[in-house]
Simulated assay, not measured.
Amino acid sequence: MNLTLMTTFTMPAERLVCEEALMSDLTGKVALVTGGSRGIGAAVSSRLAKQGAAIALTYVQGSDQAREVAKQIEADGGRAAVIQADLAHPEAAAHAVEQTVRELGGIDILVNNAGFLTYGPVAEVSVSDLDRVLAVDVRSVFLAAQTAARHMGEGGRIISVGSCFNGRVPGSNFVLQAMAKSALIGLTKGLARELGPLGITATIVDPGPINTDMNPADGDTADFQRSLTALGRYGEAEDIAAAVAYLAGPGGRYVTGTSLAVDGGYTA
């Protein structure tokens, strides 16, 4: 009888200790999350903050959403900074990193989440769309990483949010996204090799169909996207946030130069 009581009360306590350790493993770290005001970016910002990191998040439009994310982080006892940055402009990424350093005292984790989504027949792709996709999804990632690496020390993390299109293009109309997100692979491998001796890792998280306002689980193409996954369902933004948190934390210290697919088996 006593043994039963001891088991009943000991196990929850152990779980609480494990959960507390998990949620505090980024204490003292500073993270910049680009595109952190909604969807995956907001989930990543919130998750890293709950694990102890101070958060800077960028937005292009919708300052109210960005400030709401920051307000919640601060209400939970964290620190947050909101930065307006259109990453299509060459100077914006570096400025966002430098502002993070000024306002929060440094940068340990860079999450390149911002992206520009457009799709359509390749014959109809405009030069302006091509330029903006490459500017936001590739150039800004390089420039943010370049600037962040100057401030990071041992244990620095550069994490980019890619796409399941890296490994599987399900049909026509996705040429720009497949091209831009695939470019992150070469960039990340190069960063991993060059920054590895400094103790800085570089990785990618590749989401599959994720339920956000940009790709809702009840959207016009949702059933088709679900059919391409092994699990037969959409993921949630928190699934991506959990993967980013793993790579940003102690568990990710020996992971670099590679991609982590969080896609429900989309590329299986």
Rank of each mutant, 00 (worst) to 15 (best):
T4A: 06
L5K: 10
M6N: 11
T7R: 09
T8N: 04
F9K: 08
F9G: 01
F9P: 00
M11K: 14
M11S: 12
V17F: 10
E19T: 01
E19A: 11
E20I: 02
A21F: 07
L22T: 09
L22C: 08
L22F: 10
S24N: 15
G28C: 13
K29I: 01
K29F: 00
V30M: 12
A31T: 11
L32D: 08
V33Q: 00
G36T: 06
G36N: 13
R38Q: 10
R38H: 10
I40L: 12
A42V: 00
A43Q: 09
S45H: 08
R47G: 00
A49L: 03
Q51T: 00
G52R: 12
A53M: 07
I55C: 08
V60G: 15
Q61H: 03
Q61G: 11
Q61F: 00
S63T: 07
R67Q: 10
R67D: 07
E68K: 14
E68D: 15
K71R: 15
K71M: 02
I73L: 04
I73K: 03
E74N: 09
E74S: 10
D76Q: 15
D76P: 05
G78H: 08
A81P: 08
I83S: 14
A85R: 10
P90T: 06
P90Y: 05
P90S: 13
A93R: 01
H95W: 02
V97Q: 04
Q99F: 01
T100L: 12
V101S: 05
V101F: 15
L104G: 07
L104D: 07
L104R: 02
G106E: 04
L110Y: 04
V111C: 12
V111P: 13
N113Y: 14
N113G: 08
A114L: 04
A114S: 14
G115F: 08
F116E: 11
F116V: 05
L117P: 06
L117S: 07
